[in-house]
Design a binder for these strands. Structure first.
Length: 566
DNA sequence: GCCGTTTTCGGCCCGACTGTTTTCAGTCG
């Protein structure tokens, strides 16, 4: 964990404590905001500190800057110890229980001495909680359900799992609605999704809501009103919220429910300065509605051009839109080929010919076949002889299929000493080379990747951090150093599109962009059904503000700015 | 706690739903 993360977590804990104490909510949100800024900040806060520019970061003022400096110099923040004094350890963790907020937690602590989850469960069982002023049967019941959800541990799920669920729901509800679209972090293509937000408009609100809460895969209905309903679906215990709005508010609602929260708060502040009010129903001047049907009109009322959902994170996009400096983000139609696909020669399912035929349906000009190299025995890695046979087959297919070019790539293992799995003589015969770590995740990874980057035949480093969203932490690697080094040697870093990887992710892409790094999109497909994962990588690239020129796959093969041309 | 040529003080996004209130507080997003 780097310093940015460490400080962010302390700020979050301070916010929890202040909330528990019932202190000024604006001060609390200042801590939350500072925490978010630090977590997402593309540079190491220590470097900013050395430049003396901490307070230049918007959202970080004098107070926060002092605390950050205090942490960097002493490893502690006094304020933190002040605010958690007298609060029993572990108590604030209970704030994660749904339906149990700071007010109620404070109440049960002060009136009933609840200090832990066990205490809380006890006062529910023995009837003490329900007797407290402001409590009641239903509130207690809700907290009880909250405890159940808390124990199940509701984790964010990968975008790749959430998207099919959303598509299924939308498909079911389509016939009852005029318009229905996903919003929230899913529309922003965030790598993981907490809740799913869906927005609809139609003739009969009640019917839409009713159909929604009675869908066969709904497990539990959490809330149901005239305009909104929340349910838990059977898959992954995911919460899905549906909002139904009038047609002339659809754009405003889409904008509002797409978020992010920080992006919206800033927009609303700007609206206020102009004497306007934004809500999910529209933009209002006094009582008069001046926008609402179309999303871009919401932005127009603030003198902004429409901002793509993927970058609505309050990371400078509003300022960029104001000065007309929004980048023209890469589009799906810019992509001319996939640069990381496995064939039957190693651990892929289909033949090269089959892959080529499928790739054509994506409108690709080329496809990069990258099988595993010999050390990856489990993955059917190819020895020199096998590689030769594969390359000969590619040559043959290229003669027969003219509409798409098959590129001879390989995903070559970086060995324990940083050398590659094939000799330079072998590497030279390939169209391009991807190098990657597949073993020794904790052994000198940074140095090994740097050595691979130094090899003149390496064009791309695959899944540079090795993290898996399903749980694996990733290699022990200094990604900042790799970005710096790759940029220096003109080696591209991969944006691996596989839903469990999405590696590099948005934050690391932003870091790379700042260093003029080049990127390569690769699905890492092991069967042709996975070629569609390219859209997740594009989502990640867009979240990282990338334009097409920064991505190898948008170039014609002959013009592709690979490290060197062969 | 942050921020600012309409403010260095006094603002700070806005609304739905729920349950407990008899006009509103708490939680959530």
């Amino acid at each position: 964990m780097n310093k940015n993360q460490e400080i962010a977590e302390i700020f979050d804990k301070i916010a929890d404590a202040l909330e528990f104490k019932g202190e000024d909510s604006f001060r609390i949100s200042a801590y939350r905001k500072a925490s978010r800024i630090l977590k997402e900040y593309p540079e190491d806060i220590e470097d900013i500190y050395k430049k003396g520019e901490i307070q230049k970061i918007p959202g970080i003022g004098k107070g926060m800057a002092e605390k950050i400096v205090e942490y960097l110099e002493t490893g502690k923040i006094k304020k933190y110890y002040e605010v958690i004094e007298e609060i029993p350890e572990g108590l604030l963790q209970l704030l994660e229980i749904p339906n149990l907020g700071p007010k109620t937690l404070n109440l049960v602590y002060n009136k009933l001495g609840v200090k832990s989850l066990e205490d809380l469960e006890r006062v529910i069982e023995n009837g003490q909680l329900v007797k407290l002023f402001g409590m009641g049967e239903k509130k207690v019941e809700n907290i009880k359900r909250g405890i159940e959800l808390y124990k199940q541990g509701k984790e964010r799920i990968p975008l790749g799992i959430a998207l099919p669920i959303v598509e299924e729901i939308i498909n079911e509800l389509k016939k009852y609605t005029k318009k229905i679209e996903p919003a929230g972090s899913l529309r922003r293509m965030k790598e993981t999704i907490g809740d799913i937000d869906i927005l609809a408009t139609g003739e009969n609100n009640n019917e839409i809501i009713e159909k929604f809460v009675t869908l066969p895969f709904v497990k539990e209905v959490l809330a149901k009103g005239d305009t909104k309903a929340s349910v838990i679906v059977k898959t992954n215990n995911l919460q899905v919220d549906l909002r139904v709005v009038p047609p002339d508010s659809f754009g405003a609602a889409l904008q509002y429910f797409t978020g992010s929260k920080a992006h919206n708060i800033k927009l609303r502040g700007m609206a206020k300065d102009k004497g306007l009010k934004i809500s999910e129903y529209g933009v209002f001047k006094g009582n008069k509605k001046i926008a609402g049907e179309k999303e871009e009109d919401i932005y127009k009322t603030l003198d902004l051009i429409w901002i793509p959902p993927e970058i609505r994170e309050d990371r400078g996009e509003i300022e960029a839109a104001l000065s007309n400096k929004l980048p023209s983000l890469v589009e799906e139609s810019d992509i001319k080929g996939d640069l990381h696909v496995h064939s039957k020669y190693s651990d892929g399912v289909e033949t090269i010919q089959e892959i080529a035929i499928k790739a054509k349906t994506f409108g690709y000009d080329y496809i990069g076949i990258c099988d595993h190299s010999k050390t990856s025995k489990i993955a059917g890695g190819l020895d020199e002889e096998g590689l030769k046979r594969r390359n000969e087959e590619i040559d043959k297919i290229n003669e027969n299929i003219k509409e798409i070019r098959i590129l001879k790539g390989m995903e070559v293992d970086i060995l324990a000493d940083g050398s590659l799995d094939y000799s330079d003589k072998i590497l030279e015969q390939l169209d391009f080379v991807i190098a990657s770590i597949h073993q020794g995740f904790k052994k000198n990874v940074t140095e090994r990747i740097k050595k691979a980057i130094e090899n003149p035949y390496v064009d791309i480093i695959a899944h540079p951090t090795g993290r898996l969203l399903s749980g694996r932490e990733g290699y022990e690697v200094d990604i900042d150093e790799i970005i710096e080094y790759a940029s220096k040697y003109n080696v591209a870093l991969e944006i691996n599109c596989y839903p469990d990887r999405l590696d590099l992710n948005d934050i690391n892409i932003l870091k790379g962009k700042a260093k003029n790094l080049k990127f390569a999109l690769g699905t890492d497909a092991h069967n042709i059904g996975m070629l569609k994962y390219i859209k997740f990588g594009i989502g990640m690239a867009r979240r990282g503000w990338l334009t097409k020129n920064e991505i190898l796959n948008t170039y014609d093969w002959k013009e592709m700015p690979l490290r060197r041309k062969r």
